[in-house]
Design a protein around this nucleic acid. Structure first.
Lengths: 229, 229
DNA sequence: TTCTGCTATCTGGTATACCAGATGCCAGAT
DNA sequence: ATCTGGCATCTGGTATACCAGATAGCAGAA
């Protein structure tokens, strides 16, 4: 008889973390009259746990930049400024560009082929798909590049950045036009990878992401947050 | 009369964090018979605080990859595997390469000049300085590049990576030879920045850091850790 | 009516108590 | 001498109590 060990490392905190994270990402952070203040006790009540494990989760979420804890003031969902969003995209470009470079050097044919497969969905019917769906697939495409770089850390670090993009989407995306351009970019990236041209792949990925950078800078809807500190 | 507001946001936790972090970084993590287990209660006693704030600090340190908390087993200082170290260096190269690119485009003359100043110390007397001192100045040089990119996030993310290099130094550095080569690399980087050649600057920074990558891979002393989980 | 200062109360910070899983030692059985 | 099962105890996880700063509303003075 053969038994798999039971994973005892999952604790209450982990469940709380998932719930909280999902709840925060589900919020329309940038909405006008949205209440960004959280209340520890009330949250603990709703989740049916005590404050202690909840607080540890809140601290973790603070580390990830999703929350801001202000001593004796309150806990707030963190709104990112345009400048911060732009910096995240720059960092993302840096990481993914490196991932593309590594992928061009070391990824298997099958791995690169899997990218083409993902892109194929849009190459023909590019105008038919709706934005939201494309946006998800788009993220997956980029994560796949990070995966096939075989450098886990790049993926992990980028993941921490993607999280924040989720909220931004509602605010700065939206032009139909970009989808078509994006598809073209993706094909260019795939071709560079297939050609094992690592500098070219790195450049194309970086340029592609930096185009998003410029787009966000241009179309960020200035419903600016008023809070200072 | 003019008064500056008192910063009330510094709390016990922050002090504990500093102490713990310094203590951990000061440890010879990779020593042979080093005890990597920490005891919450004992630490709380030593610091003169209760477990609660200490735990929050420990969780933060876990997030940063310095500690590993194993439920009902203990808290351990995290040893990095060679693979993990190498991935960190890759990520570092990605971030700093991007920083160099931005710096070449946007840094002021004065900022670039400050790099030359830092490098000057070693350009002539390159053989005189001891390794430890050079190593510190070396880190500062790289942080300066991240600074003058004017992208804070790149610096912050790289900082989180540098922390781990501290412990690695004892283990994989040491050849006098590398100092001289490193100095040459630095001058090349500075020249590319001065020429405002951003692709070249990015390439040189990346190559330089990836040379460290190769060096570590080659000279990592295999006194391998035995623990599995 | 307006301003001042007290106070009730809300919030996060910290301390402490208790719970349950993990370990290791030891007695008793074989 | 060796193996097994139980128990004492150690460790982190969770719950709860209490503290002090932050706020806002109100009462009383000017």
């Amino acid at each position: 008889m053969q038994l798999q060990p039971i994973d005892t490392s999952v604790t209450l905190k982990d469940h709380i973390y998932e719930r909280m994270r999902a709840a925060i990402l589900g919020m329309d952070i940038y909405g006008a009259g949205v209440d960004l203040r959280l209340d520890e006790r009330s949250l603990a009540d709703q989740l049916g746990v005590s404050r202690t494990p909840l607080r540890e989760v809140l601290i973790r979420l603070e580390q990830e930049g999703l929350l801001a804890v202000k001593p004796r003031r309150g806990i707030f969902v963190q709104r990112k400024t345009l400048a911060e969003i732009l910096e995240m995209i720059v960092a993302w470009a840096a990481l993914e560009s490196m991932a593309a470079r590594l992928a061009a050097e070391a990824a298997s044919e099958a791995e690169i082929a899997s990218l083409r497969e993902m892109a194929a969905k849009y190459s023909l019917t590019s105008q038919g798909a709706d934005i939201a769906e494309y946006s998800d697939d788009n993220i997956r495409f980029h994560q796949r590049i990070l995966d096939i770089s075989h450098c886990k850390l790049l993926g992990v670090m980028a993941e921490g950045l993607f999280v924040h993009m989720h909220a931004v989407r509602r605010r700065a995306m939206g032009e139909e036009d970009r989808v078509a351009k994006s598809v073209v970019d993706h094909m260019g990236i795939i071709e560079a990878l297939e050609a094992r041209d690592s500098p070219l792949a790195a450049d194309r990925v970086r340029d592609h992401t930096m185009r998003l950078h410029d787009h966000v800078r241009q179309f960020w809807r200035a419903a600016e947050q008023t809070e200072t500190s």
